[in-house]
Design a protein around this nucleic acid. Structure first.
Lengths: 229, 229
DNA sequence: CGGCATCCACAGTGATACTG
DNA sequence: CAGTATCACTGTGGATGCCG
């Protein structure tokens, strides 16, 4: 990408990550921590292979990722974020938060990968009863199942099915997301085609509060405005 | 911009603001609140005129800005952000925060506009002695002076010189920024060419604490800004 | 002068085919 | 599997022209 040649932190950031596809590659690596080339391709439907290679080289050169040559069990190179790359997470979350309303008018023709839910869900959901025994919720909304688990008051998401889930949500990504973020009540979602197995109280325990504000984030000493009211 | 066609909030956000120059236009409107076409051009050195027009139309179509036709005193159209547009500020701040370290290796050939300092400074600085009488600091680092004023524990920046500043910083953008964000001590900065007029204690009152973390943010959800006094 | 529209050379992108 | 190579196309940047 051409540089904007402006002495401005935002412009400098865009000089590095403003290229098409770049932030989506970072998204994949934030979700997976360690990706093979093929993982990236399947997580980035639509990217031309030459662009993926170009971007990986640029990201490596910019110090946001490293390519590691095959630890013995695997016969391929792995890509992972450096600390500097992981530092982009707050910016990605902010952009994702801003973009969330745009998911409403999704055409249904959009590609979807279940693991894309990981960042927004871990960011917005939290365990409201951290004292109780942990729970497990399985989501089936796309190419593969995803499991939510409560851990120390937070909610962690990982790809794969759960062994003995306390609840299971089955439906379109739109519906599953709308229910978890409380934009839709469970009953409304059921009416719209969602299938729910398990005690409805399970859902309430992690469901986001006001559909817009929540705090699941670790976040150092000084915290921003807390929405008490 | 072509859509990524992914059911992902980040991808949807990039569909809207991922185009080249778009976020920099939003930056200008966050700084100025109301811009003429010419203000945008001078605030965006390097942008081709046709691209500016294209982007303004796209932004208007996407509902991030509105163009208002000339309130009588002025004989031109004005552009301003909608609420949806202003909602991008956290994302811009996050990206700017991430990009800040890149300003270190600036070539000196970069363009600079003093008003670009407004967002980062208001975000990072705060008044550590909000009980004391307010103070005023004038910065001279680029095309025009900029004035910092303490208001209710926060620091506000506005373009223009101060009438009776308690301190004046004169030097390159790099130096002025490094001193205010405490990446450089006042003495080191002076040695590097900064000129400082006034009591050094004035600077300490607003200078950022740890060079990385600070909280100056407004945002109790009630209202945005009533900038014009 | 402010606010564009037009033209053109070229770099970046996207789709597909090919290879070690 | 992990890329390279090719090529049509589109978006960008730079210049310049127009008009009230």
């Amino acid at each position: 990408m051409r540089s904007y040649k402006q002495f401005c932190a935002l412009a400098k950031a865009l000089d590095v990550i403003g290229d098409r596809w770049t932030l989506l590659i970072v998204r994949e690596l934030l979700i997976r921590a360690s990706c093979r080339y093929t993982d990236l391709r399947t997580g980035l439907p639509g990217i031309p292979t030459n662009l993926l290679v170009d971007r990986l080289r640029e990201l490596e050169h910019a110090g946001l990722i490293v390519r590691e040559e095959a630890p013995p069990p695997i016969a391929t190179a792995l890509f992972r974020l450096t600390g500097r790359g992981r530092d982009l997470e707050p910016a990605l979350q902010a952009l994702g938060h801003w973009g969330a309303p745009l998911l409403g008018k999704a055409t249904g023709k959009d590609a979807f990968r279940t693991h894309w839910l990981k960042l927004p869900l871990e960011h917005h959901l939290c365990d409201k009863m951290p004292g109780r025994p942990p729970i497990t919720i399985e989501l089936r909304a796309g190419d593969e199942p995803m499991t939510l688990e409560t851990v120390e008051g937070r909610v962690q998401a990982r790809p794969g099915a759960a062994r003995a889930p306390d609840a299971v949500l089955i439906g379109s990504p739109q519906l599953v997301l709308a229910v978890l973020t409380a934009k839709l009540s469970l009953n409304d979602a059921k009416a719209a085609g969602l299938r729910y197995e398990g005690d409805p109280a399970i859902l309430l325990r992690v469901q986001v509060v006001s559909a817009s504000q929540a705090t699941n984030r670790r976040r150092p000493a000084t915290q921003t405005v807390r929405s008490t009211r």
